[in-house]
Amino acid sequence: MFLFVVRRLFFAVLLLLAVSVVTYLLFSALPVDPAALTCGKNCKPDIIAANRIRLGYDKSIVEQYWLFLKGIFVGRDYGMGQAAFSCPAPSFGYSFAQHECVTTLIGRTFPVTAYLSIGAFIMWMIIGVGSGAIAALNKGKWQDRLANAFTAVGVSLPTFYVGLLVLFSVVIWLGILPFPDYVSPLEDPIKFLNAMILPWLTLAILSAASYTRLTRNGMLEAMNEDFVRLGVAKGLSRSVVLRKYVMRAAMVPIVTIAGLDFASLLGGAIITESVFSLPGMGKLAIRSVVESDLPVLVGTTLVSAVFIVLANVIVDIMYGVLDPRVRVK
């Protein structure tokens, strides 16, 4: 088992390297000239050329990538003379659109995304697994139908639509909450909760849906498995069978999806953060696309890749723990 973990971690590092190469190549091949976007109205060929040098886009892609990689470990210097400055390690580059080191930007936006993800994750697991279990135990009854309808609606409606409906109905039509206005929980926990409850709810409604379904179907499958029927035949109590066998078997696909969903949330919930004006990493990332801010785009892509790759490793390990039949050598 230990060896397995070490090997997976090693592959994870290789994978991240591959991600960084692909990302860099992909984004360097975009037909946008970041230098041309720096001067707007006054753009003239010589200004664009000068800016290209200043931003480092005059170098070959390989060299750019090497500088980028080096920057992660030793930091990076920019500009010359009075206008010079540097981004200390770990540096993902400098954003000329936002006048900050990318690492600083990510460091500032990540906590928001983390709060959003953790809260939403807890909410949707409770709602999703709970309603899925209820549906499975009441198969064919009204509880099951209701859970089904909820699943369908939640999984099918686009995030921005649900988010805005939640926002408008709770804040404007019902008037229960004030408009979400993000503040750090360290600053004002009540205001923080006020701002986060609706985005959490939105993500929970959307994500819980697929968990309801997975849980329901997983449990129904498991209830018909031979080993479960064996447990019943052996005379084990219903709750023990449900807990020890049914839930456990049903959890396998859920753990897979949950780990990955959570990880990709940590990389930024673009739409939710936009709808609720949360200054998180998703918004940072989408802004970088909009502004063709390549350093930020590469930086956020890489950071979210780190989470997903880590989650993958954890999921693989959990697989072995949850389903003894699938213990990988």
Partner: peptide
């Protein structure tokens, strides 16, 4: 310095 001071009036 239009390479650094961009976007401004000319």
């Amino acid at each position: 310095a239009t390479d650094v001071i961009t976007d401004g009036p000319s």
